[in-house]
Design a protein around this nucleic acid. Sequence first.
RNA 1: GGUGGGUUGGCCGAGAGGCGAGGCAACGGACUGCAAAUCCGUGUACACGGGUUCAAAUCCCGUACCCACCUCCA
Length: 467
Amino acid sequence: MTFRLYDTATREVRDFVPLEEGKVGLYVCGLTVQSEPHVGHVRSGVNFDVLQRWLRHLGYDVTFIRNITDIDDKILIKSAEHGRPWYNLAYAMHRELDKAYDALNVAPPTYEPAATGHVPEMVELITELIGRGHAYPAEDGSGDVYFDVRSWPSYGELTHQGVDDMEPAADADPRGKRDPRDFALWKGWKKETEPETAAWPSPWGPGRPGWHIECSAMAGKYLGPAFDIHGGGVDLRFPHHENEQAQSRAAGRPFATYWMHNAWITTAGEKMSKSLGNSLTIPAVLEKYRGIDLRFYLVAAHYRSHVEFSFEALEEAAAGFARIESFLQRAGADETADGQLPQAFVDAMNDDLGTPAAVAVLYDAVREGNRLLAAGDDATAVAASVDAMLDVLGLHPADPAWAGSGSSAQDGKLRSAVDVLVAGLLAERAAARKAKDWARADAIRDQIKEAGIEVEDTPAGPKWSID
RNA sequence: GGUGGGUUGGCCGAGAGGCGAGGCAACGGACUGCAAAUCCGUGUACACGGGUUCAAAUCCCGUACCCACCUCCA
């Protein structure tokens, strides 16, 4: 089976055919760095990371561009509220985002361009659009430049909407627009309210980029006029992606061949951005849960399915993942073994990244491996296969990428210290068991458990682990 | 008003006309001094009402409820 993808533009699962054999150009809309990243934000990161890894597994040479938007209205407003320069806020949040990605083993893209570094490319694109009659400088002297929606007949094609059916924005600022649906490509500098550092020179006077033009310009620069896959969250379909496509095509660039959109994570039925809380920011969640558990939770759901986030569900996922890890430990993974991916796993992944079915295959393998171990047989081949599956999902516990979240050198030292202490108690318990003094043996086990350490008797002797 | 998505067992979460994805939890059994871990087994779930079909959670019609987007939210 070849790799197939659900394409939002055509609303169907299509065979993936790259523009150039063996190569994939992938563009994903990253974040506007205006606040700490939350669980919803990283879902997109994890989803597209899985896509990237799978494409690489399939042998594609992937150029993956994921931008960040480091200047916009909200950044300016928030930074003013906090009394810090906008670029300082954007930079700080950008660093937080990188930390969150690292904690979830989201591999860096080929490049992560920032909007503010690509003003010349945007100016060039806007100039081209004006030249072709698809954009115009506002007539009110504001310095804004708008895209002329009416001049582009296929506007609305990505989201299958007719221009006349669109609800005119309630908050649309009509200043200088020919049609309320026209959108800003360039925003003139507002001297009175905006810092001078937030304005760049342009043929239309000082100003800053409109949101949509950034992505068109950056995708064009790094991936060329036509590329394979464009991704982002569902909320970006309209207006952001619709506008990106319109302005790119209006400038004579074919743009993306496939559109992928990941669904939401909600809490209490509400979209995360609307619902309160700092309790769901990545730093906060990572205080209680490991990054690998959170990633597993996210990967176990299909990227196009809505997920209702709950800590209970996260805990269930973590419990399940613990079983996988414990199998690998018991099987004694052979690092040299070149694990094969089961065909069912490959088929699941090829079918629009069917990670839920892929995870089911993973569990099947774990059960089979445990069965072999219970029968006293060799399970290293199965373990190698489990290794391979976890690897391609970015979930391998031994991946050094996880080092920062839970198993540092410090932990190692602590562990060996505890080991010495527990070993003494276990020797005492062993003596009691030998004398069939079960009460004494159980008392020792309970004592150890009081300290939060679980003791298991295995054929190879007692083992302890921290709860 | 326009566009799209959803409602699956105690819980999470797949599937998209016919064999009960998978996980978590629960219960029974094996193993164990007892546990733990592990394995084996146990569930007649698909919002509601009609219809199509030999066969519907899956297709069609209708109803209810929920959600997203409609110009700078992943």
